[in-house]
């Protein structure tokens, strides 16, 4: 395959940045999208040009490191991570536009690499059960109905890639935040801190500069792990019931 790539290049956070066009040839359909970029980078290196910087690590769709906004969609045309996207999803001669995630809360570091530490701070605000190591009950002393455990697992599958933010016209982090709030609100272990968790995580999300949710559902449609928008509904319920009965007045 032969392709034309239009890639966002930006030297650093303060650089203005812009698109640069690169032709690539010798692309096979079995390559992953990132392997195709590896080929480009090898060629650039050979010519003495700075390779295109992009985030990636496990290359098996679970670490959430890879990003890329491909032809107007986070992680490209399939509902998967970029590392699991293969070139058989593209056709010979196609032009592919590659941009970084665009969101105020995800500042660009270089080229296609963005800073997603805002997500870490949202989790630090309350995305945990406050139990220390040791001194916990036997695992089977906390029976959990299978249906509830499965729902919690559905939410817990979030990989923190940020595609939901990139897909949203408001750059909202509701899907990400609600996945963690839901997981812990569903489980008996999360009950004690249920209210404060919802309040604190939502407050941190707002403080990071993520936008509001207007229920367009773009996040769910683009989430590589199929995290459901019903989690957002659940978080809203959690948040409002927490706020109306809050002791933090």
């Amino acid at each position: 395959m032969q392709l034309t790539l239009k890639i966002w290049r930006q030297k650093n956070a303060s650089d203005k940045g812009g698109f640069v066009t690169y032709p690539v040839s010798d692309v096979s359909k079995d390559m992953s999208f990132l392997e195709m970029l590896d080929v480009l980078n090898e060629n650039l290196t050979e010519k003495g040009e700075d390779p295109v910087h992009f985030d990636h690590d496990c290359r098996e769709g679970i670490c959430g490191t890879c990003s890329l906004y491909i032809n107007g969609k986070p992680h490209g045309p399939l509902q998967t991570t970029t590392c699991q996207l293969h070139m058989r999803s593209f056709s010979d001669g196609q032009t592919i536009t590659i941009e970084p995630w665009r969101a105020k809360a995800f500042p660009i570091v270089k080229d296609l690499v963005v800073n997603r530490s805002a997500f870490d701070r949202i989790i630090q605000a309350g995305g945990y059960v406050s139990v220390g190591t040791g001194g916990v009950p036997d695992a089977n002393e906390i029976p959990i109905p299978k249906t509830i455990a499965d729902l919690a697992m559905d939410a817990a599958q979030c990989i923190g890639c940020g595609a939901c933010v990139a897909a949203c016209k408001n750059a909202s982090a509701m899907l990400f935040t609600s996945a963690k709030v839901s997981q812990l609100a569903l489980l008996p272990q999360g009950q004690v801190e249920r209210k404060t968790r919802a309040e604190k995580m939502v407050a941190q999300m707002d403080a990071e500069g993520f936008g509001a949710c207007t229920n367009t559902g773009a996040c769910e449609a683009e989430c590589p792990k199929g995290i459901s928008i019903t989690n957002i509904a659940r978080m809203n319920r959690e948040y409002f019931s927490a706020v109306v009965s809050s002791e933090n007045v």
Partner: peptide, 13 residues
């Protein structure tokens, strides 16, 4: 296993 369950790890049931 006790520790992870207490943290809210959703093991299969």
């Amino acid at each position: 296993i006790d520790q992870c369950v207490a943290q809210g790890v959703p093991f299969a049931r």
